[in-house]
Computed example of a mutant assay.
Amino acid sequence: MSNQRLWALAPLMVLSLAACGGEADKAEGGDGATPAPSSKTLAAAIGDEGDLDTLEGVVKNAGLSDVLEGKGPYTVFAPANAALGTAGADLAGEAMKAQSAALLRAHIVPGALTRADIMAAIERSGGGGVQIRTMSDGLLTFSKDGDAVVVTAADGATARLTGEEKVVSNGVVQPVDGVLVKAG
């Protein structure tokens, strides 16, 4: 299938995930409430979160702050400082701008996906997992491991959704405990 057709399918995948939100209350075991949207943008939410300082530096170096301030919506699977480790520092500087942008595109999907949306889609799939394309044209697979949601990239890199999601004016920040690209 051509990349053009795959990108044309991306909004449909987002809509199918978002349309599943009503079943999330049962899947989460709590009240299933999605945080109230903030008037902040993705860039501001990442900048305000102390455990995402390294990611904020990568965003700035990549020159993508304006994109994350823009219209959206996008969902950013945001690696925490510990997950990025020295990779974040290695991506500093003008010479690493393209690599910074590539790393970020592998962590961003079109649409605003809350955990409730993701959990409901996994449940609808019969627990077998659901997939969505990233802005780098990679494929992320979402599945459950006990109560945790695991995200697996096509290259085998994995992370778990952690921390508190931030629903903002132009998308959702989903903190993760790993980088969704294997070091190569």
Rank of each mutant, 00 (worst) to 15 (best):
P79S: 10
P79W: 00
P79C: 06
A80G: 10
A80H: 10
A80F: 08
N81V: 01
N81H: 13
N81A: 11
N81K: 12
A82H: 12
A83C: 11
A83Q: 06
A83D: 06
A83I: 02
A83K: 02
A83W: 00
L84N: 11
L84Q: 07
L84T: 07
G85F: 02
G85E: 04
G85A: 15
T86Q: 14
T86G: 11
T86H: 11
T86N: 10
T86I: 09
T86W: 06
A87H: 10
A87S: 14
A87C: 08
G88Y: 00
G88Q: 02
A89C: 07
A89P: 09
A89Q: 14
D90F: 00
D90S: 14
D90L: 04
D90G: 12
D90P: 09
D90A: 14
D90H: 10
L91T: 04
L91P: 12
L91R: 03
A92T: 10
A92E: 13
A92P: 09
G93N: 04
G93Y: 00
G93R: 03
G93K: 01
E94C: 05
E94S: 13
E94Q: 12
A95D: 13
A95K: 15
M96N: 15
M96P: 07
M96S: 12
M96C: 09
M96E: 14
K97M: 03
A98S: 10
A98W: 09
A98C: 01
A98H: 09
A98T: 07
A98V: 05
A98R: 13
Q99V: 01
Q99K: 14
Q99Y: 08
Q99G: 09
Q99H: 10
S100R: 02
S100Y: 00
S100W: 02
A101I: 00
A101D: 06
A101W: 01
A101S: 11
A102H: 07
A102T: 08
A102L: 01
L103K: 05
L103R: 05
L103I: 01
L103D: 07
L103F: 02
L103P: 10
L104K: 06
L104E: 03
L104T: 05
L104F: 00
L104D: 06
R105A: 13
R105Q: 12
R105F: 11
R105N: 13
R105D: 08
R105I: 03
A106V: 03
H107G: 11
H107Y: 04
H107S: 11
H107F: 02
H107V: 01
I108R: 06
V109T: 12
V109G: 10
V109F: 01
V109Q: 07
P110D: 11
P110K: 15
P110W: 06
P110M: 11
G111D: 04
G111M: 06
G111T: 15
G111R: 05
G111H: 07
A112P: 13
A112T: 12
A112W: 00
A112H: 05
L113F: 13
L113Y: 04
L113R: 08
T114R: 09
T114I: 02
T114C: 09
